[in-house]
């Protein structure tokens, strides 16, 4: 557990550094790349915290697909962020500090991380862990909860993904570029 904790602390510290770098950078290409690293590090954090399925998804989605989408957006918009004019950074900073302070105050009551007696581990989770072998018969509890116990949820999520696809189709559509080899061909 101690080694786990060290890796966890280091990865999260790296993520904090990258977050600061994202705020300070103006090169949007660099930001997209840093964001990809940020996602990969968070996948590492998930692995350390025993969430293999989540780490897997984050590595494929965050570091892969969303970076590619962000880069594709950059080639169609602008590479550089324009220096901001007539903007006072004090008000955003105050808002962020007050919100952060309230949230930190809220965490002071949270049970210690890893505390097995925390309320979160005493509602439905023990039932899933103890009964899913008998009721569902597959070893991966995450899959049983995802696809069977909480099948409604997942149906909703799948529909959301489909809807997002429809929204992007409505906004951008798919244009097939003309091939360079056959310049005379009409589309």
């Amino acid at each position: 557990m101690n080694l786990d904790l060290t890796i966890d602390v280091l990865l999260l510290a790296f993520m904090a550094v990258i977050a600061i770098a994202v705020v300070r950078m103006r090169d949007l290409f660099g930001i997209a790349m840093l964001f990809s690293v940020f996602s990969l590090l968070s996948a590492g954090v998930f692995t350390v915290m025993d969430a293999a399925d989540v780490a897997f998804t984050e590595a494929a989605v965050g570091a892969g697909v969303s970076t590619i989408l962000m880069l594709a957006t950059l080639t169609r918009t602008a590479r550089e962020e324009q220096p901001k004019r007539s903007r006072n950074p004090t008000l955003p900073l105050i808002v962020v500090f007050v919100t952060g302070a309230l949230l930190v105050f809220g965490t002071s009551d949270l049970p210690r991380m890893g505390d097995a007696s925390a309320p979160a581990h005493h509602h439905v989770a023990p039932r899933y862990i103890e009964d899913s072998e008998r009721e569902i018969g597959i070893p991966n509890i995450v899959t049983s909860v995802l696809a069977s116990y909480r099948g409604y949820d997942t149906l909703g999520e799948t529909t959301v993904i489909f809807t997002a696809g429809v929204a992007v189709m409505a906004l951008l559509g798919i244009r097939r570029r003309r091939r360079r080899e056959e310049p005379g061909e009409e589309d």
Partner: peptide, 13 residues
């Protein structure tokens, strides 16, 4: 859906 998203973004001039 992921591939359609990529097609939509990359197909844009």
């Amino acid at each position: 859906t992921m591939l359609l998203l990529y097609y939509a973004f990359a197909g844009r001039e």
